[in-house]
Amino acid sequence: MAGFALGIVVGSLLGVAGAPAQAADNDTCLVCHRSPLESSKPGKTGPFYIDPEALARSVHGGLTCDTCHQGFTAGPHETGALQGVDESLRKVAGELQKKRGKGGVALASCVTCHYESFQDYSQSVHGVALFDKGVKDAPYCLDCHGPPHTLMPKESPASRDFYTNIPTTCASCHGNSEIILKYRLNTNVVPTYQESFHGKKLILGSSDVAVCSSCHGAHKVVDPQSPAFTEGLAMRCGQCHEGASPKFATAFAHIPATETSQKIVHWAERFFAVLTGGVILGLVTHIGLDLASQVRIRQRRKKGKK
């Protein structure tokens, strides 16, 4: 994998240097792609419609179409147009095509500018899963970052990578029961976060709490059991919890109270459930009895007066 990644890095550096030779004017493309095209499926809008205004607003609004859609230089959609495309980019595109059944240069082309992120990604659990293990559903750039033509900067609340949107973005797989079952992911990840103070405050509108990436990072997500993750964890906790120790860092490990290691917490839950239920039941019964007797006394008094 490392060799592959290195090849990509070197290649992409070259790619940047030899960026699209003939930058076509976006308007040329938008002549056709401005309006909804007929889809092969009746009643549906084709996939080629680009809203020029949304594109202009997006973080990539300043780019030309052929920054990503490389190879369309010899006239529209001519076959064999890929000849002029950088080889390393074509290699990634080919890998994507092979592993996911869909690829193309445009999908792979993030590498051209964001090669550092790609390098991190290719070492992550997600990158390894996709490129080394051939896991079809493993996320690639757009799965986390969203549709490319309306991609917003991460400072925008509309972005899938806006700080407080990150748990929702990750949960699109880690909270998806189909994906969880298929790849035997940890089922507790999302529920335990939602139950935590971090998750609760996030839902209530706080932006001052840890989200997934605060502990796991973004592009270089590694196995949480590995030293690469656990070694730096206390430091990451310490960004908010001053003086956090490695012991403290183990406190939040997505372990539900029902697990054996959390038995004592589980028993505390049971204890309070029984205590609360018992006490409130007793008190409500007492109220009911008291109320009934008060009503009875009043009726007796009324009868007495008559």
Partner: peptide, 27 residues
């Protein structure tokens, strides 16, 4: 003071405290 707590107590003290605080509050 969770950071200070785990300096003197096991980590599960935080779990217990959360359960106790939340449930006793309801009661």
């Amino acid at each position: 003071f969770p950071v200070e707590t785990v300096r003197f107590f096991p980590v599960w003290a935080l779990g217990i405290a959360k359960v106790a605080h939340s449930d006793e509050a309801l009661l």
